[in-house]
């Protein structure tokens, strides 16, 4: 139920969790049929001497030895299945029906370096970790911060970018920091690290949860919330894109670096991801991707 409502735009290319398994089943059925066809074709070529073409090159962007990738314990053979929300422009979002963004680019680059076929999969942010634990994805490349609670259920790579959570308020409200607010209603994205933090504050009356950072931010100009806690980079991008009358206020509330969690007991995969990240930063690929999306290098921003 969650997914069918919340994954409204996620359903376009990659269905959310429930959809994904359906697709998978369909694919494996298709695989069987394709397999049978190849077998028949093989027989035919044997008899009639079609010769030449080998039908066994598969469809994965191969090159890797299967022994190497089988050590990763992948959800789907030959593919790097990574999850993201698809609702977090410019990190992951849909543009003309196509999933794109900084996280998608990073995940794809990591996949390429692991000699695997990139397979991005979308679902509501708050369901991603549960999905990872359930073995639906190999990793989450979805702007997820490494926290002690999360580290209990997944192993995190090194950080692949740094940002921060800031308070965003209506333009001209005069609020300079979170301490200026009184009996405030604050908006936060569901399942984020800010929710618990904000509930502890004495001058925060209510914390409203939104499906995404963007949803929280666009409710600031309406006045239904006094402010929203939104990532600096996401906020700046969204405010500019949809010309929202909002301002960033005060110092960073939460340090918000992002890392890539993988399932527990997948050390080989984690090591390979860490190596890919290090290599990307060393050879300038990372800077290139970062420049493309933000105009700046966000490794340590």
């Amino acid at each position: 139920m969650t997914e069918s409502w919340a994954g409204t735009d996620a359903g376009r290319t990659e269905g959310p969790d429930a959809g994904a398994s359906r697709t998978e089943r369909r694919r494996s059925a298709l695989g069987l049929r394709v397999g049978a066809l190849i077998a028949v074709a093989g027989l035919l070529s044997g008899c009639a001497g079609f010769g030449g073409g080998s039908a066994s090159d598969g469809s994965t962007g191969g090159g890797s030895t299967s022994a190497e990738t089988s050590e990763y314990g992948l959800v789907r053979d030959g593919e790097f299945t990574f999850a993201l929300s698809g609702q977090l422009a410019p990190f992951s979002f849909y543009e003309n029906g196509k999933l794109t963004g900084f996280d998608v680019a990073i995940g794809t680059e990591v996949a390429n370096r692991l000699k695997l076929k990139p397979n991005p999969s979308t679902g509501p942010f708050n369901t991603l970790l549960a999905g990872l634990q359930a073995g639906r994805y190999d990793a989450i490349v979805g702007s997820m911060t490494n926290t002690p609670e999360r580290a209990k259920v997944a192993d995190f790579s090194s950080d692949y970018y740094r940002s921060g959570a800031f308070l965003w308020v209506k333009s001209g409200s005069g609020v300079r920091s979170i301490d200026d607010l009184k009996d405030a209603v604050l908006g936060v994205p569901l399942g984020s690290t800010f929710e618990a933090e904000m509930k502890k504050k004495a001058n925060v009356k209510e914390v409203k949860t939104y499906e995404s950072d963007v949803d929280a931010l666009i409710d600031v100009p309406t006045g239904r919330v006094d402010g929203a806690i939104v990532d600096k980079l996401v906020g700046a991008y969204t405010a500019k894109k949809s010309s929202l009358q909002v301002d960033m206020a005060g110092p960073a509330l939460v340090d918000n670096s992002a890392a890539i969690p993988v399932r527990k007991q997948h050390e080989k995969l984690l090591a390979a991801i860490n190596k890919a990240l290090t290599d990307m930063k060393a050879d300038g690929t990372y800077t290139k991707i970062s420049q493309q999306w933000f105009g700046i290098d966000i490794t340590g921003s």
Binding site: M1, N126, E149, G191, E195, T209, Y210, E211
Partner: peptide
């Protein structure tokens, strides 16, 4: 009424979402 969760009403279902995300036990 559970659909109201998606327009930020903190009713039963939204609360379940929040708690499940907090404790990672959906």
């Amino acid at each position: 009424t559970s659909v109201a969760a998606f327009i930020t009403v903190a009713e039963l279902f939204r609360t379940a979402q929040i708690v499940a995300a907090e404790k990672f036990r959906p």
